[in-house]
Every structure is written in structure tokens, then in C-alpha cells.
């Protein structure tokens, strides 16, 4: 009944103990996956804003799986190569080329942490658009003191780099799927995971690059 591919002996013992206690209904790749998907760990059938369920949210894609395996270790060259190539394949460019939108709208996106939360309270996207929450991790406007430090400071981003096609292309790709340049980064894939719309990405890019944006003052 239990068909595990790569279980070592201690893992088999654990599975046997847990089998006796929890009564498995199907086969999972690991005990943690079993606790999530088979042992009632999460409210899997709850609907999500994008039209799926919590089960879909918890099901890992390639990059999530590979990067999770690292644990506390930093990325090795084989993992980096595989993640970078998965990321490269995912990039979709806007049909009319990369354009800067409205920096004021981009600022609102950068400040808002609303969206995609599901559970005891669930965000309603029909009432309020989801944000990008850039400030949770990055410094942007030098006058904003409540900025996070998980990511690098982006203050003066456009002022320091200009607005040439290569840098716009690079910034777009980092926002769309940062694993192209930073395999197994902590940064979300805002384009690939449909966190932000194409328009929102272009507004955030205006916030980074527009000479009138507070980021560049």
C-alpha cells in the first residue's frame, strides 16, 4: 500500500509509527506534506481570490520545491542553474514593450500589503486591489522611516541607474520573477504568480525610475 521512492530506514520507522497513529489515506512525499494534505493540517477547501483553493496554494511548484530543499543552506550551483532556467522560461514581456506607468499609483502599490490573505479573515479583491507591499522589505522614499530591511534599499533607484532599455528590462524581470538573477531569493514572483497586474508592475517601475518620484529625490 505504501509506495515510497527514497525512504531510508529511519524514515520508514517513523512512517510506520505515524501510520499506526494517524492512519494514512494516501501517499505523500514526506511527513510534512502528509500533515498538510492528509492529516487535516489546513482548511484545504477554502476558496482563494484567484479562483482556486487553499490546497492549490499549498501545492508547491518547481521553484518552491527545489528552494525549500535547501533548508537553512545557501544556494549551491546545481540548484542555482536549475532554478535560474525555470525562472527564465517563466518570463513574459508586455506586448507593447516595457513602459513606465504612473509613479503615484505605483507608490500606492508599494505601500499596500492588502491582498491574497485567506483564513480567519479573507481579503476581498472586489473592494480593494491587492498591493505589492514593497515597503515591507525595501527602503524606497528616503522620507519614509517605516521600511523593511529583508531586501536591499532601492532609494534613488532610477537616479543612480538612468532609464535605458537594459536597466528597465532588468528591473521588469526582477519584479516578474527575481529567480532569474537571484535563485532561491526570498522575494516573491510578482508577475509569474499574478500578485500584480501588468499595469501595476509598470506603475511600480515608474515609482522606481520616474525622475519626479519621491524615490529619486
Amino acid at each position: 500500500m505504501i509506495k515510497h521512492k527514497n525512504y531510508t530506514t529511519p524514515a520508514l520507522t517513523l512512517v510506520a509509527i505515524l501510520f499506526a497513529t494517524f492512519s494514512y489515506t494516501a501517499v505523500a512525499d514526506s511527513l510534512s506534506d502528509s500533515l498538510i494534505f492528509e492529516q487535516g493540517g489546513f482548511r484545504l477547501s477554502q476558496k482563494t481570490q484567484e479562483g482556486g483553493t487553499v490546497k492549490d496554494r499549498l501545492t508547491q511548484d518547481g521553484i518552491q520545491k527545489v528552494c525549500s530543499k535547501l533548508g537553512a543552506a545557501s544556494v549551491d550551483s546545481n540548484t542555482a542553474a536549475s532554478v535560474t532556467s525555470m525562472a527564465r522560461e517563466s518570463i513574459k514581456k508586455p506586448a507593447g514593450g516595457i513602459k513606465l506607468g504612473d509613479w503615484k499609483k505605483g507608490e500606492a502599490v508599494a505601500r499596500s500589503g492588502y491582498g491574497f490573505r485567506v483564513g480567519h479573515k479573507t481579503d476581498d479583491h472586489s473592494k480593494r486591489e491587492a498591493g505589492g507591499n514593497c515597503y515591507a522589505c525595501h527602503q524606497l522614499d528616503p522620507n519614509e522611516i517605516a521600511f523593511g530591511t529583508l531586501g536591499p534599499s532601492l532609494t534613488g533607484y532610477g537616479k543612480l541607474r538612468g532609464t535605458g532599455e537594459p536597466i528597465l528590462n532588468y528591473a521588469y524581470e526582477v519584479i516578474y520573477n527575481p529567480h532569474v538573477y537571484f535563485p532561491c531569493t526570498h522575494m516573491p514572483r510578482f508577475g509569474h504568480n499574478n500578485v500584480l497586474t501588468g499595469q501595476q508592475i509598470s506603475d511600480v517601475m515608474a515609482y522606481l525610475f520616474d525622475s519626479a518620484s519621491p524615490v529619486n529625490q
Binding site: 511527513l31 510534512s32 508547491q60 533548508g71 537553512a72
Partner: peptide, 29 residues
């Protein structure tokens, strides 16, 4: 199993517990 959960990336933002709790002195906002 808890350790696996701690490092398990999933969801809209690809986060795991380790995204925020694997480094010292970092801030959210």
C-alpha cells in the same frame, strides 16, 4: 516534520517561515 514545514515555501508569495526568521536584525517595515 516541523523543520520541513518551517522551510517549506508555498503560496502566492513563495514564503516560508524562514523568509522572515532565518536572519538577525532584519525588519518588516
Amino acid at each position: 516534520a516541523g523543520k520541513e514545514l518551517f522551510y517549506r515555501r508555498a503560496g502566492t508569495l513563495d514564503f516560508s517561515c524562514n523568509t522572515c526568521h532565518g536572519d538577525t536584525g532584519k525588519r518588516i517595515r
